[in-house]
């Protein structure tokens, strides 16, 4: 499996200030009765975007968000907590997002996102505050150099696990790497 490689991403942000945005917010469980990965973008943040009768909410932060120009989510800490549903990064990707930046991204969500070419970026508190305070700002995520750059030239760095970074830069899922370990796996099984 492969996806579009990410080296740098320059885009406007959509800011979700809340902490602990769980995967039930990202895609409610009633949309999980699918057997495919495609087409989940319409269900992304569904209950934030639509009211009980399915009409778009006037107050939704997603109103006017153009996926072509707003590819970066900025969220409060512990983004993606809760379930292991990979439908969460699938839905965000299908909606048009390519990355989320927070001070702290939940463990399983982060792992799932990285395997689908959706970039989870964990920045320091100061950078996070500045991002939260500037919705719609244009920022650049440079995965080669592990830096987030603001329009004013200010930069923040971010750590990312080396192997996940390599997979994102190359646009590959790690299955190939694991399949190459077959001799070692066979030896372990003996």
């Amino acid at each position: 499996m492969s996806f579009d490689p990410i080296k740098t991403l320059t885009s406007r942000t959509v800011v979700l200030r809340q902490e602990n945005i769980d995967t039930d917010q990202i895609i409610p469980a009633r949309f999980l009765t699918t057997t495919v990965k495609d087409g989940l973008g319409k269900s992304a943040f569904y209950d934030w975007r639509y009211d009980e009768d399915g009409r778009p909410k006037n107050s939704s932060v997603f109103n006017g968000v153009n996926p072509a120009t707003h590819k970066i989510l900025v969220a409060g800490s512990n983004f993606g907590c809760g379930s292991s549903r990979e439908h969460a990064p699938w839905a965000l990707s299908d909606f048009g997002f390519r990355a989320v930046i927070s001070s702290d991204i939940a463990d399983i969500f982060k792992s799932n996102a990285q395997k689908n070419g959706f970039l989870p970026v964990e920045v320091d508190e100061e950078t996070h505050k500045k991002l939260l305070a500037s919705p719609g700002a244009e920022v650049t995520i440079d995965l080669e150099n592990c830096e987030v750059t603001f329009g004013d030239g200010e930069k923040g760095s971010f750590p990312i696990e080396a192997f996940a970074r390599r997979c994102l830069l190359d646009g590959v899922d790690p299955l190939g790497h694991l399949l190459n370990q077959a001799p070692e796996i066979e030896a372990y099984e003996r």
Partner: peptide, 10 residues
């Protein structure tokens, strides 16, 4: 531990 669907495939 819990894993995502890609890892289920792994």
């Amino acid at each position: 531990f819990g894993i995502g669907t890609t890892e289920v495939g792994h």
